[in-house]
């Protein structure tokens, strides 16, 4: 089945949304029509037949508009690849492969969803927030989604307006330090208990630095919440062919290696994993 598309996508907009952070809009109708929250695209940053950098760069799908065929990416300029990407202007062509990977699971039965984004983690959670807001409309529970958006500094907190624009189903909280994040989480817990919502009926979704993911996974377990984390890894192919993007996970079933763990591929088995499957590095 052909469900991944190599699209020579035209840039429709490129704009700055924060320090070194850009929003890129691309015309990629096939991807816009089929992408799910948490999936990503593999973006060719160098010009065609220029091999510096050689490999594509994985970027989360921030939002899609199936009607106009536009996909949106939010990225931070870090090195050679994203530097070149930031130079693309409207009308230029960027090759993108996608949608890639396994995204977030949306459980209709979840009573509340908590989203925690650290830094560029906002990029992978926005699409999810949008879809959850739709689920909320059916339930009439408000706020159905708590989005906790943060970063190392105030200016690193980006995209808040887009989350706020989702309206009453989504309550946005911002945080800067780890301590503030913990306070915000406590506040959310208080609110849930006031509303008589049991934490074991809630889901936690998170994307950001690995240390944060790991602590949140433990926190979610403590509160018996379903927890899904979106992992990052250096990638080459993005489709499960090169085996470069490994992470350790519990072996699960059907594993013939006589071990309790295995290497999973972040690009194909993830980037979203159930937190309890992930074996964090010591």
């Amino acid at each position: 089945m052909q469900d991944i598309f190599e699209v020579k996508a035209q840039v429709t907009t490129q704009e700055k949304v924060g320090p070194d952070c850009h929003l890129l809009q691309l015309a990629a109708p096939q991807i816009a029509a089929s992408a799910r929250p948490g999936q990503f695209v593999n973006v060719a940053c160098s010009r065609q037949y220029q091999y510096d950098p050689l490999l594509r760069r994985p970027l989360s799908i921030y939002r899609v508009s199936p009607d106009t065929g536009i996909i949106e990416l939010i990225y931070k300029v870090r090195g050679r690849g994203t530097e070149l990407l930031a130079q693309k202007r409207a009308g230029e062509i960027v090759a993108v492969l996608g949608p890639l990977g396994k995204g977030f699971d949306i459980h209709e039965g979840t009573s509340r969803a908590i989203l925690v984004a650290g830094g560029l983690g906002v990029a992978s959670l926005m699409f999810l927030a949008q879809e959850l807001a739709k689920v909320a409309l059916g339930k009439g529970e408000e706020p159905y989604v708590h989005a906790l958006i943060g970063g190392h500094s105030a200016e690193e907190i980006i995209c808040v307006d887009d989350y706020s624009a989702l309206g009453s189903p989504v309550k946005v909280h911002t945080w800067i330090t780890r301590a503030r994040l913990e306070q915000e989480l406590e506040k959310v817990l208080e609110e849930l208990s006031e509303q008589g919502v049991k934490t074991n009926t809630c889901s936690l979704y998170t994307c950001g630095p690995e240390g944060m993911l790991r602590r949140l996974a433990a926190w979610a377990q403590e509160h018996q919440m379903l927890c899904q984390v979106s992992l990052e890894s250096h990638m080459s192919c993005g489709v499960g062919a090169c085996q470069s993007c490994i992470c350790k996970t519990s072996a699960g079933t059907g594993n013939t290696l006589e071990d309790t763990w295995k290497y999973s591929l972040v690009c194909r088995d993830g980037p979203v994993f159930n937190a309890e499957e992930v074996i964090w590095d010591e």
Partner: peptide, 12 residues
């Protein structure tokens, strides 16, 4: 080693 078992690219 660059094309998996074929399945991966048959999706493209």
């Amino acid at each position: 080693g660059t094309f998996g078992y074929g399945e991966e690219y048959s999706r493209i």
